[in-house]
Design a protein around this nucleic acid. Structure first.
Lengths: 232, 232
DNA sequence: TCTTCTTTGTGTCAAAATAACACCAAGAAG
DNA sequence: CTTCTTGGTGTTATTTTGACACAAAGAAGA
């Protein structure tokens, strides 16, 4: 490769990294969007993102954007896809390396309260009109999430450190958009052996307290190395 | 996104599209590599690829490279991953959008015979030292292929239009690196209902002729739209 | 030409995984 | 104190998987 020198020098496309940030709250999956303050698409909502800085990797750029928007670090993030068609951006050829991140909304609320940016969480079934081709990118991310949650334990990244099985099931039902039998779901989850019983129950508002669990990430990573397959 | 204007103007990273080209022959999975004629990494083998032209999408670029190297068009190709770390290329910050393609070697031999490029097929377990971070990209592609062949009918893209079940099984065994029970494999394949019996048997060299089949791609695409799931 | 070897093709059975299903207990709401 | 909502549990029938053996056709070699 790189034998042709054409276009090694300019013109080069510009490169951005965008990050779809998913959160889960009150039984619905949400995404964080930013209201654009400048043209093009001023006033439209958009996926957070920005141009790569000099000698910055796309992943570093996406993490930086995520931090700027949410104050969160060390969250689950994964490359989604690169969108490279000319014509995506009226200003010229702009390539976007898209990532998606899963954040625990409980932690977000702790850190992001002070920031007065025009950012808002939208339930994925109540999205506003989006800038650029961001609706396409978002659908792409939804599909990836739907596919991946079934064979990788990434759902836990959207829940607080301690959660109940009804919570977890609601998460799966919201993302996969199916109804799941409670008993079969619990059996499946239990036989992974990856939940740690917190020996504690929810107190307060709802009826009797459901039991708290946490996800044993360390154990999962050990098992994964030996070829273990998480699957729901 | 794109609210910051930093790096919308130069400096911009250069962008290449590379394409890992897989073929299957004589029971082994192979990749097409190019011997580099210029620095850097002159004399090393590399994945085919090159810089994006002005207003060219990465996919178009990868298809162009594939055609230049093999003479083939309309083959299976899919985006793999984008490699964006600075330091991948000694000449500067070069981002690579990697694709992988699955080609039918029987068709390749028809079209590529005349070309005297320094291209060669390497069995994936006998690779030479590769230029840049191409070994990493190649491993990435192998893993994707291994994962994907189990739940999408892409193996057929590596076989001729007519193939035998022993051929197909050898393909799966080569890619997944496992031994599969012949009877269970056939049962699984048959119950997809996607193979068309050609009512014809292999004649010639090997022992008794195995029966020929072809893959019913149209039927698969119909079913896939209705949520059908291919799985081996 | 006869024997041996390699390859293809087929069916059964036991074990495991899945889907469907009903009841009880605890607390909340009225 | 009655009713309603939610959380928790186990069994059974069906489906899917994995393990396994034998017969027929042709090729190779004696």
């Amino acid at each position: 490769m790189r034998q042709s020198t054409y276009c090694y020098e300019y013109p080069r496309p510009a490169v951005t990294a965008d990050c779809i940030i998913f959160g889960f709250d009150a039984g619905t999956l949400k995404v964080l969007l930013i209201e654009r303050g400048i043209e093009p698409f001023k006033g439209h909502w958009a996926i957070p993102g920005g141009f790569l800085r000099e000698n910055e990797s796309a992943e570093a750029c996406a993490k930086r954007e995520l931090f700027e928007e949410t104050g969160l670090e060390n969250v689950f993030m994964e490359q989604l896809f690169s969108f490279t068609e000319p014509g995506r951006d009226p200003r010229g050829h702009v390539i976007t390396v898209a990532y998606y991140a899963l954040v625990k909304l409980s932690e977000y609320e702790l850190k992001a309260g002070d920031d007065a940016r025009n950012a808002a969480w939208f339930p994925i079934d109540q999205l506003p009109a989006l800038a650029f081709d961001h609706d396409r990118i978002l659908h792409f991310a939804m599909n990836r999430l739907r596919g991946k949650i079934r064979y990788q334990p990434i759902g836990f990244e959207l829940l607080p450190g301690r959660f109940t099985l009804p919570d977890l099931q609601a998460l799966y039902e919201a993302i996969l958009q199916v109804k799941i039998d409670r008993r079969n779901f619990r059996r499946k989850i239990n036989q992974t052996g990856l939940l740690i019983d917190q020996n504690e129950s929810v107190t307060g508002v709802p009826h009797r307290g459901a039991r708290y669990y946490s996800f044993d990430k360390a154990k999962y990573e050990q098992l994964a190395q030996r070829g273990f397959n998480f699957e729901i």
